[in-house]
Amino acid sequence: MGRWGRALDATMREHGEAIFAHARALAGDDESATALVEDALVDTFSRGHVPESPAAGSRAMMQTMRRAAVRATAPPVPPPPPDGRTDASSLAREALTALPRHERALVVLRYGEGLAVEAIAEETGLKERDVREGLSRAVALLLSAYPGIGVTVEDALEGGMLETASVEEAW
């Protein structure tokens, strides 16, 4: 299988859990997350350049997944029936589950990874204007689903980190 095959195996052996965790957060359901991981694996390890280390492989996959997730056009998977729980975390998760894929991925990058608009744009290859519009729509949808979720458009657009370097460690 050669060097790329060893690199693929080592990357998944060392970072597989974190990669699936990130994919599941970005995509919102098991099937989409699985497809996201598989596509990113093929994309990352079929190129001429093979990542230099498992960490580099993981970083390349994470970015590929983010770029794919913010470009997903499929509607969200219908959420399961409410489980009757009314705590803030459960309500927030229901609201997140109802977001379209594009908006969901932006919210995960903004609130799961704490990235600022500029960093999200750089990481995903989107224009800053599109990131702002997507986050604004996402906040409106989250607030309509759960008014007490505690997000504002101002915070979504103005907060967050400008650097992406330390993000992978969080997963």
Binding site: H22, A25, A88, S89, A95, L96, V107, G150, V151
Partner: peptide, 19 residues
């Protein structure tokens, strides 16, 4: 939003099980 961060973290946990 702490609630939203926890919601994202819960999905990430589901991803670890998926792995």
């Amino acid at each position: 939003s702490a609630a939203l961060e926890r919601a994202v973290a819960a999905d990430a946990d589901a991803g670890r099980s998926l792995a």
